[in-house]
C-alpha cells in the first residue's frame, strides 16, 4: 500500500489509483527499528519531514510550515516538546512525534507499522485515544500489529494474515480459535493460556 514493495500478483487500488500514484494520500508511521536514531534531531525537525517532497530544495523552515508543524504537535499533545531532542523522548512520545509527522501531510490514509511495539501499556492507551481522535476526523487508519491482545476493543475491523488472508471482518466475530490456529500454528496454545497471572505450561515451572 505504501508503494515500497512491488505486487507479486493480483492488483491493488487506492482511491482508484495504483499505490505509486496514490502516495500523496498515504501517511506512514514506520517501525521504531527502521529509524536511524543516531541523528540528534529536534521534534520539530522530525515532524517537519512530513512536509518534505522531492521538490524541497530550501533548507530553511518557513512560517507556513512552522504553523502546520505546531498544529500537528498540538493534535498529538506534544507542542511543549517542539524543541526537544528526540533522543530524550519516551517510546510513546516518539510514536506520537511520528504520528504528528504524518498529520502534517494531511493524508487521508494512515499506515502504522507496529505502532505499539516499543511502548508501555499506558502509552499504548494514550496512543489509541489519539488514533481514535484522528479517526473521528474522517481518516482511515490501518495498523499492522502482532499483538492480538484486546484487538476487538481497539479496532473496528481486522485482517488476519499469514502469507494469505486468514480472515477479515469484525474482530469479535472473526478471531476464532481456528483463525488464531491458522495464523500462529503451534504457538496457539501459548496464546490461549497466556493471560495475566497465568502463563500456562510455558512459565518455566
Amino acid at each position: 500500500m505504501a508503494g515500497i514493495t512491488p505486487l507479486s500478483h493480483g492488483s491493488l487500488k487506492i482511491k482508484g489509483m495504483d499505490p505509486n500514484e496514490a502516495k500523496s494520500f498515504i501517511g506512514y508511521v514506520p517501525q521504531n527499528s527502521q529509524i536511524n536514531w543516531n541523528f540528534p534531531l529536534s521534534v520539530k525537525q522530525v515532524v517537519e519531514m512530513g512536509l518534505i517532497t522531492k521538490n524541497t530544495f530550501n533548507p530553511f523552515s518557513n512560517r507556513k510550515n512552522d504553523a502546520i508543524v505546531e498544529d500537528s504537535l498540538n493534535k498529538v499533545g506534544l507542542i511543549e516538546k517542539i524543541s526537544e531532542n528526540i533522543n530524550n523522548l519516551s517510546g510513546g512520545q516518539l510514536q506520537r512525534v511520528l504520528l504528528a509527522r504524518t498529520l502534517t501531510q494531511g493524508a487521508d490514509i494512515l499506515l502504522l507499522d507496529e505502532a505499539f511495539s516499543a511502548v508501555d501499556i499506558g502509552a499504548e492507551d494514550d496512543l489509541m485515544k489519539l488514533i481514535n481522535g484522528i479517526k473521528q476526523d474522517g481518516k482511515t487508519i490501518l495498523i499492522a500489529t502482532h499483538d492480538i491482545n484486546n484487538v476487538e476493543k481497539k479496532f473496528d475491523e481486522v485482517l488476519c494474515l499469514n502469507r494469505h488472508c486468514c480472515a477479515f471482518g469484525d474482530p469479535s466475530e472473526v478471531l476464532t480459535e481456528d483463525v488464531i490456529q491458522e495464523m500462529y500454528g503451534s504457538h496457539t496454545q501459548i496464546l490461549k493460556e497466556h493471560t495475566p497471572g497465568n502463563h500456562g505450561d510455558h512459565n518455566g515451572n
Binding site: 505504501a2 515500497i4 514506520p30 529509524i35 541523528f39 534531531l41 517532497t53 522531492k54 509527522r101
Partner: peptide
C-alpha cells in the same frame, strides 16, 4: 537528512 533518518519513510513520501 530525511532519507538518512528514515529511508523507508522517505521512500513512502515519494523521495527518489
Amino acid at each position: 537528512l530525511f532519507y538518512s533518518f528514515d529511508p523507508i519513510g522517505a521512500q513512502v513520501r515519494d523521495l527518489n
